[in-house]
């Protein structure tokens, strides 16, 4: 029953993002927002890598969770993703730090990833800077992952999507990965 209704819920999520009402009020000066919270847009100062990543559609990209599939779509599923990350990661033995590192990026319709952005916070969720031996190392590992898979609508149309990985770090060790 639940599985039967799940595609319907996904459709609701899709349409809830694409059909704004026409009635609007513009009485106050408005804050600067992107099209939607979390949108990653091209930044020539950091996105001019030799990989030449570009989205398939610069105007349409959905969050990873707005599709009829689990949070992660990766070849070999999440265990393979975790294995690749843990195999590649060398935790520094000095300057032990704890907190969370979130790396956000776009996976395009050709399953190439790019536009990597990193946010780092301490255990109280306040911004902090991990040493580059932790943060930059993780960012590099994530940018080298090659197993991402496409996400598509219930009608089979493939979209670019925004994905993120949050690392729970305790004393430089990766304790868990969300989603």
């Amino acid at each position: 029953m639940f599985k039967t209704l799940y595609p319907f819920l996904i459709c609701l999520l899709f349409f809830s993002c694409s059909n704004p009402p026409s009635k609007e009020e513009n009485t106050k000066e408005e804050k600067e927002y992107r099209r939607t919270v979390g949108d990653i847009v091209f930044d020539p100062t950091i996105d001019s890598s030799p990989t030449g990543f570009s989205p398939c559609n610069a105007n349409y990209s959905y969050q990873y969770y707005k599709f009829e599939s689990n949070g992660i779509k990766y070849k070999g599923e999440k265990p393979q993703l975790v294995k690749e990350i843990l195999d590649a990661y060398s935790p520094p033995e000095e300057n032990l730090q704890s907190g969370y590192i979130t790396i956000r990026f776009v996976v395009n319709c050709k399953v190439k990833s790019g536009y990597f952005r990193m946010k780092q916070i301490d255990t109280d969720y306040k911004p902090k800077e991990f040493s580059s031996a932790v943060g930059d190392q993780l960012k590099k590992i994530i940018s080298n992952l090659r197993g991402w898979e496409t996400k598509s609508s219930s009608k089979g149309r493939v979209y670019d999507y925004h994905q993120y990985l949050t690392f729970k770090i305790v004393d430089n060790q990766i304790k868990s990965i969300v989603p």
């Binding site: 009020e25 009485t27 106050k28 408005e30 804050k31 939607t36 919270v37 979390g38 969050q63 969770y65 969370y100 979130t102 956000r104 946010k119 916070i121 969720y125 306040k126 911004p127 925004h162 993120y164 949050t166």
Partner: peptide
């Protein structure tokens, strides 16, 4: 939601509902 909060800074629902997409998209701060 910003306008809602500006009109009534004690209207808790708007803080809550405005917060949700940030969590879902990795902006925990």
């Amino acid at each position: 939601f910003d306008r809602s909060i500006e009109l009534c800074p004690t209207f808790d629902y708007s803080y809550y509902e405005k917060s949700v997409p940030y969590a879902k998209r990795g902006d925990i701060v």
